[in-house]
């Protein structure tokens, strides 16, 4: 489904290679976790896959169901079924959460040549899915992410994901800034979306999230490429030994 081959990328205007020949395949139904020390290229991978400006792909490929992702605009990638739950969701004053969700949904439907969702059907759907994530009606009426707590913002990201029903979901440090209860709610939301035709790429710094969203595969990203892969136990080993202990001293994170 998601096929990344020898992906190389730099930050625009800089020579330094951030992604350095990264290869990864996510098949339908699989949950992959990508862990790695600071500066390993985790967020760059998320942004390059979703098409954010400011990065330059210097080699390799990334396809979703055979379609070249790297050629597409961000909105076309969304229509193709890619979703990125962001580390820092943006606030949009003057635009209600509900309205934003409907615009997003209908934009994607339109791009796919489908009919817009009716107001009634949308309301029913959004209430249903919001309830699952513990997103109250009040949060739906408020401006997008405005004045939301860290946990509310992340839950809102998962709600968008649940509404847009993507093929491949990328979660970029979704666990950052969450207390244990919020983490559990977010994880429940993600788990509820696991299905045989949907893939997940979960980018995280800590093992904690993976206690709740159990991955099929764990990859360790460092220096712009996947250094080692394994099953869930690799995450536990990382937790115990640190990146240096698993990958060798040269990969140890510098203590802050």
């Amino acid at each position: 489904m998601l096929e990344i081959k020898d992906l190389q990328a730099t930050i625009e205007g800089q020579d330094k290679q951030i992604l350095n020949g990264l290869s990864l395949t996510v098949r339908p139904g699989e949950v992959h976790a990508i862990m790695g020390p600071n500066g390993s290229g985790k967020s760059t991978l998320a942004y390059v896959l979703s098409g954010r400006d400011g990065y330059e792909v210097t080699g390799g490929s990334a396809t979703l169901d055979g379609e070249d992702l790297l050629e597409l605009e961000p909105e076309e990638r969304a229509a193709a079924g890619l979703f990125l739950a962001m580390q820092y969701p943006v606030e949009i004053p003057g635009v209600s959460n509900m309205y934003f969700l409907r615009q997003a949904m209908n934009s994607i439907r339109k791009a796919r040549g489908e009919e817009e969702i009716s107001a009634g059907a949308f309301m029913k759907l959004v209430k249903e899915r919001a309830a699952l994530l513990g997103v109250g009606g009040e949060l739906l009426k408020r401006d997008v992410n405005r004045g939301f707590s860290g946990g509310e913002k992340k839950r809102n990201e998962i709600l968008q994901m649940a509404m847009l029903q993507p093929r491949i979901c990328i979660l970029d440090e979704t666990d950052s800034g969450l207390d244990i209860d919020a983490l559990r709610t977010v994880a429940d939301g993600v788990n509820a979306m696991r299905s045989p035709d949907r893939g997940f790429l979960i980018i995280t710094h800590y093992q904690r999230l993976l206690d709740y969203i159990v991955p099929d595969h764990v990859h360790v990203l460092a220096k712009g490429r996947i250094q080692t892969s394994g099953d869930r136990s690799l995450a536990l080993e990382l937790e115990e030994k640190g990146y240096g202990g698993v990958l060798g001293a040269e990969f140890a994170e510098v203590a802050a």
Binding site: P74, E75, A79, F83, V90, S107, A111, L164
Partner: peptide, 8 residues
């Protein structure tokens, strides 16, 4: 980017 990544 946030809005475009949501399909707009």
């Amino acid at each position: 980017f946030y809005l475009r990544s949501r399909g707009m």
